[in-house]
């Protein structure tokens, strides 16, 4: 087996650069650009001549922009070459982590731009609304990771995006004691953002749980039909 690697830290750096370049090229740019463009356009709409958005409109626009961004992130792990690259030595969690690492700064920059596109007078508290956006983004990525884990098709992003939309609709229907969409100044505003923080944590845990490969299968307790062969190779352990 031919393997061309360069030893030492420089070698590892070169390997990481090559890998990052390869992963960069296969990111789902169309979905990300469409979602980012839609979100930015919504925010830019508040600056159109004649528009004087109030704080409630500003909040609504930012929440919709965050949802649009989340829909783009739902496609993050789509990979048309999934089956072809299923058994390469560079493991899926590494590749998925690189996708996240490459997209996260772009998403952060995009969100900052969206935030500042909304006029200051209509802008809700930036920290709180950024927490909401982070939870939506993390939720989208977690749904994408779960889709990859549970389904074998190379492009499970559409399913993840639909699931995110369904969750967004469900959030509208939540009873007031679990309300996530409180407006600024509402007595539930602080409590709602503690829920957003909890959602962010849950999304991160779900994402981490769904990234390993190959799929861990539930091992049914099968009865041994013959005595074990002492010369046989060691049994398969967890993966």
């Amino acid at each position: 087996m031919l393997r061309v690697t360069v030893g030492g830290d420089a070698g590892r750096g070169a390997a990481l650069r090559a890998l990052a370049g390869a992963v960069w090229r296969v990111l789902p740019w169309r979905a990300l650009a469409a979602a980012g463009g839609a979100g930015a356009a919504m925010a830019a709409g508040t600056r159109l001549p004649g528009q004087q958005p109030d704080a409630l409109i500003g909040l609504l626009v930012l929440r919709l922009a965050a949802l649009a961004g989340g829909l783009g992130l739902a496609f993050l792990f789509d990979d048309p070459a999934r089956h072809t690259t299923e058994t390469v030595p560079v493991r899926r969690p590494v590749r998925a982590g690189l996708r996240l690492a490459l997209v996260a700064p772009l998403a952060a920059g995009w969100w900052a731009a969206v935030l500042f596109l909304v006029p200051a007078a209509a802008r809700p508290p930036a920290g709180a609304v950024t927490l909401e956006a982070a939870a939506i983004g993390a939720g989208a990525v977690a749904l994408a990771a779960a889709s990859v884990r549970l389904r074998s098709e190379p492009g499970p992003g559409a399913g993840a995006a639909l699931a995110l939309l369904a969750l967004a609709v469900a959030a509208l229907l939540l009873p007031s004691r679990w309300d996530l969409l409180a407006p600024p100044g509402d007595p539930d505003w602080g409590q709602a953002h503690r829920r957003w923080a909890a959602l962010l944590c849950w999304a991160a845990v779900l994402c981490a749980a769904c990234l390993p490969q190959p799929l861990r299968r539930r091992r049914p307790a099968l009865r041994t039909r013959r005595p074990p062969d002492p010369d046989a190779p060691a049994p398969l352990h967890g993966t």
């Binding site: 031919l2 393997r3 061309v4 690697t5 360069v6 070698g11 070169a14 390997a15 090559a18 890998l19 370049g21 390869a22 090229r25 296969v26 990979d79 048309p80 070459a81 999934r82 089956h83 072809t84 690259t85 390469v88 030595p89 560079v90 590749r95 190379p154």
Partner: peptide, 26 residues
């Protein structure tokens, strides 16, 4: 059985991509 590709890649770029994933880094 059903190999997938990045359809916008050239044949060279795609095999190069797989080669990177196979740890051919130089």
């Amino acid at each position: 059985q059903n190999p997938g590709f990045h359809p916008d890649f050239t044949a060279f770029a795609f095999v190069d991509y797989v080669a990177i994933l196979k740890e051919l880094t130089d």
